[in-house]
């Protein structure tokens, strides 16, 4: 029992991850606003679709703005909550916009005491016939945004495009984190083998690399499924996808290499050296090259990391336990592989 505690811990953490990662609701969001295009100088009604919203609750306290930057905003003159998911906003759009171009995108902001503040970035575009930036700036500061509410419940952030898939942060991302923890372990055993050629070090490195590859393949498959529904394609030939596929191929070569040696000592020594090279290549392939070029993947070049904006404190409470949970499950699987390899060695020796 004493030696099993970490397996229990891993399973408990994963149960926690599944229960709270799936049951915690998302914050209120705005999914659509129509019409998309408005004309300056006219009064227009915009129909807005909410997500996880309760517009009819305290509907007289609903407020809405069109905004650009942090200074310029226009409050809706009339707000009609049709139902919990639909609200109609009337805007008296002034004749001039706070910009020197003919068309400008605006962010829609809705605030309610029940749902908190929610936005649709770049949700509406307004056209103007004559440009007068100074007049526009004056007109768009008349109804500033004030005292926004915060939803008082344990929720995950709502992001357009992502929607509920933000929960994949606890299933796709920890695959890679757990893979890394486990591959570091494998490299440590490979180095140990080169210092002191004990066959058990080689078996441990092999078992951990095996699990690391499993987690990597699962990470790639789950990433492709997520990509299909957010980027549009399973495989976009994105840098991050390509480089991880190459890294996993290098790690598959580890097992091809092992299978091609008869002499156990030679096999162990050469695969230990190869493992160190494989690990040295996976770091730049997965974490450095994608940061140097443009990528669709968060945390890579031209795209901010999840951590800086999207991973709030509520998500951290599930994300970090998820990493530990998946890593412990991986170690457990690795331990079973190791024990199988030890038994095989026994049989071959007998």
């Amino acid at each position: 029992m004493k030696n099993y505690w970490w397996k229990f811990l891993g399973v408990l953490l994963l149960i926690y991850t599944f229960v709270f990662g799936l049951l915690t609701p998302l914050k209120t969001g705005i999914t659509a606003a129509s019409p998309y295009s408005l004309q300056a100088g006219q009064t227009q009604v915009v129909t807005v679709q909410g997500y996880n919203s309760f517009f009819t609750k305290e509907k007289e306290k609903l407020r809405a703005w069109l905004k650009t930057g942090s200074e310029f905003a226009l409050a809706a003159s009339q707000i009609e909550a049709v139902d919990d998911r639909t609200v109609k906003l009337t805007f008296h759009v002034p004749a001039h916009l706070p910009t020197d171009s003919k068309v400008k995108d605006f962010t829609l902001l809705i605030d309610s005491p029940a749902d908190g503040a929610s936005i649709l970035p770049g949700g509406l575009s307004i056209k103007q016939d004559s440009v007068n930036e100074a007049a526009g700036k004056a007109l768009w500061t008349a109804s500033p945004i004030s005292q926004l509410h915060e939803k008082e419940a344990i929720t995950f952030p709502f992001r357009n495009i992502l929607g509920e898939t933000i929960r994949n942060t606890y299933y796709h991302v920890p695959m890679w984190m757990a893979m890394f923890i486990i591959l570091i372990g494998a490299v440590v055993f490979s180095i140990k083998y080169l210092i002191n050629p004990d066959a058990d070090y080689d078996r441990k490195a092999m078992a951990l690399t095996n699990v690391g590859l499993l987690l990597g393949i699962l990470g790639l498959i789950t990433g492709a499924i997520w990509a299909k529904n957010t980027w549009g394609k399973y495989w976009s030939w994105d840098v991050k996808q390509n480089m991880t596929a190459i890294a996993l191929l290098i790690y598959s070569a580890y097992f091809v290499l092992r299978a091609s040696f008869e002499d156990p000592e030679k096999k162990a020594r050469i695969s230990a050296v190869f493992n160190i090279f494989a690990f040295a290549s996976i770091v730049p392939l997965i974490y450095i090259i994608p940061k140097l070029t443009d990528s669709l993947h968060p945390g890579a070049g031209g795209n901010i990391a999840f951590g800086s904006q999207d991973l709030d404190n509520t998500m951290r409470m599930i994300f970090y336990p998820a990493i530990i949970g998946w890593a412990l499950l991986g170690l457990w699987i690795g331990e079973v592989i190791l024990r199988t390899a030890r038994i095989r060695e026994r049989i071959l020796d007998a």
Binding site: L22, E164, R167, L214, L218, I221, I225
Partner: peptide, 28 residues
């Protein structure tokens, strides 16, 4: 896949991990 705020994408991802681990278990 994109209905219900794309919740089924999360379901598919968890299913993929589960199936992957099961295939691994069969091999073992």
């Amino acid at each position: 896949m994109r209905s219900m705020g794309k919740m089924y994408v999360v379901v598919a991802v968890i299913l993929a991990i589960f199936i992957g681990i099961i295939i691994y278990l069969i091999r073992l």
